[in-house]
């Protein structure tokens, strides 16, 4: 399958992949500091394991940025 992650196309040798595996594959070290948007919907943190990413999906990892001072 081909998935767009943060605007870049990526190929995977599988037909579907849970969100938590995609986070790990993209070396997101602190998933609790990231919101995941899949095709325009924000995915509930508790559902990373049972939400599947499939061919032509668009995924955004949106990072919490707390600084301001």
């Amino acid at each position: 399958m081909e998935v767009t992650v943060n605007g870049e196309k990526k190929r995977y040798d599988c037909r579907a992949m849970p969100v938590d595996a995609l986070l790990a594959d993209n070396r997101v070290e602190a998933p609790e500091m990231v919101s995941v948007q899949l095709n325009g919907r924000i995915i509930d943190r508790q559902r990373y394991r049972d939400t599947l990413v499939v061919d032509r999906d668009e995924v955004e990892f949106l990072y919490f940025m707390g600084g301001g001072r």
């Binding site: 990072y63 919490f64 940025m65 707390g66 600084g67 301001g68």
Partner: peptide, 9 residues
């Protein structure tokens, strides 16, 4: 607005 290291949003 948020900033961290070299990044902003």
């Amino acid at each position: 607005g948020g900033i961290l290291r070299f990044r902003g949003q």
